[in-house]
């Protein structure tokens, strides 16, 4: 166990780690939390931690929009967050990745605040921490449990991941899921976790652009695709695949119907694959309701993410969205019918 990279690992007793996990220093807190998560001696603490994600939140000075952008300078996870390069209200950088992470995180905060009345990811004003230039030519962006981490892409398949507002919205929405129903990250609950991240990620974009359901592109990641691929995006909520027979990406594996659900073990049981089924249902519901997707369908889904539990699967999702639609717009309302019809359209 002691070969790992963490200085706190193995030498600090669990109760001290818990204390450190409450530290006001982000680096200390992160190291402590990771050590807890990796320590076999701290299994109980780890269970507590996963049940109490709030421990990992960085409180912001005034409990309102507060962005911090760090430069990881090619460092790995163990070097996060990196060097602070832009903070709330600070001057813009010469580095586009820094400015994109800052602006897109701001739009995401504004979206949640103005549309749903939510104050940051934890609804208690936690700081939005982003690190850019994570890893070397990393073809990925991820949520660490506490902050966003963005790779630069290899310049062929992908370019920098901060460039797409929906990618940033997706990563931050993983934070919102963490602080609401905290869906487990495997199989159907995991696919729903990915689904909510995609839904709110794309709604941030549509809201920012003031697009109706007809004007929206319903794509995830169109701005991060590199010059080596002709794929227009990574995922689409609409019918059909986002890409096909691409030499670098292959064919979009997302199903749009329950009968095509992936049942293998790859990708934690297909969390980024099977999210295609609820994604398409959201698209069908939102387009049937019409207007702007965040105004009605978005509210149904936002209520649902707060109502589900960590182990909820597709069946619960189907029932709950219908129930929330009835609660918001009335039983047998056009909206509830649209939601029911949408799930029927993907096999439920």
């Amino acid at each position: 166990m002691c070969e790992r990279r963490h200085p706190l690992h193995c030498i600090v007793p669990p109760y001290v780690l818990e204390k450190l996990a409450d530290s006001s220093n982000p680096k200390t807190r992160r190291l402590a939390i990771e050590a807890i998560q990796q320590s076999s001696a701290a299994a109980a603490t780890r269970r507590v931690l996963s049940a109490m994600p709030r421990m990992a939140a960085t409180p912001s000075p005034q409990a309102r929009k507060h962005r911090l952008v760090y430069d990881a300078k090619g460092g790995s996870m163990s070097s996060l967050p990196g060097k602070l390069v832009r903070e709330e209200g600070g001057r813009s950088s010469k580095d586009p990745a820094v400015n994109e992470a800052y602006l897109h995180a701001g739009y995401t905060y504004d979206f949640y605040q103005r549309v749903f009345g939510r104050n940051s990811l934890d609804d208690a004003g936690m700081s939005l921490i982003s690190s850019v230039h994570v890893g070397r030519r990393l073809n990925n962006a991820f949520w660490t449990g506490e902050q966003m981490a963005y790779g630069d892409g290899d310049g062929t398949v992908f370019i920098r991941f901060t460039k797409s507002i929906d990618v940033v919205g997706h990563e931050l929405s993983h934070g919102v899921v963490t602080y609401t129903c905290n869906l487990e990250y495997h199989d159907e609950p995991g696919a729903l976790n990915e689904h909510f991240a995609d839904v709110f990620g794309t709604l941030v974009k549509q809201w920012k652009k003031r697009q109706t359901v007809k004007q929206a592109d319903w794509l995830i990641g169109p701005d991060i695709m590199g010059p080596g691929t002709s794929a227009k995006a990574l995922r689409t909520f609409a019918d059909g695949p986002a890409y096909e027979d691409d030499p670098l990406l292959g064919t979009d594996p997302q199903p749009k119907h329950l009968r095509d659900k992936y049942t293998g073990t790859q990708d934690e049981g297909g969390v980024h694959i099977n999210s295609g089924i609820p994604n398409h249902a959201f698209y069908l519901a939102a387009t049937a309701i019409g207007g702007k997707a965040w105004e009605k369908a978005g509210h149904i889904w936002y209520r649902t993410v707060q109502a589900l539990t960590a182990t909820s699967g597709f069946a619960e999702m189907v029932a709950r969205t219908s129930q929330e639609a009835a609660g918001l717009f009335g039983p047998n309302s056009l909206e509830q019918k649209a939601v029911k019809q949408a799930w029927k359209g993907v096999g439920f």
């Binding site: 990796q38 996870m77 990925n140 991820f142 660490t144 449990g145 506490e146 990563e171 976790n193």
Partner: peptide, 13 residues
């Protein structure tokens, strides 16, 4: 087999 934090999302395996 090493894994990142269990709370992390979107990690490539």
């Amino acid at each position: 087999e090493t894994r990142g934090p269990s709370a992390a999302r979107d990690l490539v395996g």
